[in-house]
Amino acid sequence: MRPILLQGHERSLTQIKYNREGDLLFSVSKDHVVNAWFSHNGERLGTYEGHIGAVWTVDVNSTSTLLASGSADNTAKLWDVSNGKCIKSWEFNTAVRRVAFSEDDKNLLIITEPRMGFPATVQIFNVEGGLEGEHSNEPEMIVHPEGPKITVAAWGALNKYIVAGRENGSVALIDAKTGDVVSSNTVHEATLTDLQMSTDRTYFITSSKDKTAKLIETATLRELKSFSTDTPLNSAAIMPKHQEFVVIGGGQEAMDVTRTSARQGKFECRFWHKILEEEVGRVRGHFGPINTIAIHPDGRSFASGGEDGYVRVHHFDDDFFTFKFQI
């Protein structure tokens, strides 16, 4: 396969995300800009400009009308996907680490980090207004969760719970109505770097700096599968179709990269068999650690964003789909 290289950022990528149909790919990086791309040919649709700090996170709603982004400039912004206009900006005390639309597009989850005396917050905003409506400045719900810092979060099935991954390697279920921590389980030994839901949100995959990625059941937070590698992981994603694979990626810490060659840095996307926990293949190409991976919802392509500032979009060859794992 020939990867398409997207050079829309000047600094390292922080998150990439496909929309529901997978025709658009959104990428954010530390260089303040949000980019939108057509995933099939890598053409850039446009940029969303307005942030004045590193953008940590991005999410798009299911109808691809609203785009949310969270940044280190202490704001989260809501954009019109079609024309790049900012329609709402929320101001916080600290940087925004994660934004996520609920399954029904009615709510927006925003996680802010603790800093300079301000506690971490989990906030839920009502975005039912959509493109035209007014959006309240006040959250519908705000909680200051106790315990270690939340690094990643996502909505559970039917928006009942929020799944949060924390700095100490634990995952927690937070009730989306009351904000109580319902249950918690320490599955990793080091900080969680990514958390992505399966299509039906009954299980999710986590990646961690402890060099493992794990599949975890949402309802019980029970560990289902574990994928152990030799390098700190930054991202993990589940293949929705065609093959029972997960894709995980990472690499040596950015700060140590200059001391190693690209080969030793292990900057590869690794394909693991989801059920048999066996590694099946690797895709190399990045010059730096892989920060974020996203898989096209139809499972025919995937994209990875790296510390090197590139997004690489890979469309699988035909033999990928005919491959059968032999036991």
Partner: peptide, 23 residues
């Protein structure tokens, strides 16, 4: 104009994803 702009979009060298059953 429509179509990928070579300044931002380039095609990389061919990469083979070799899938194998023996990890």
């Amino acid at each position: 104009k429509p179509g990928p702009d070579p300044a931002t979009t380039t095609v990389g060298e061919n990469i083979k994803l070799k899938l194998s059953s023996t990890g």
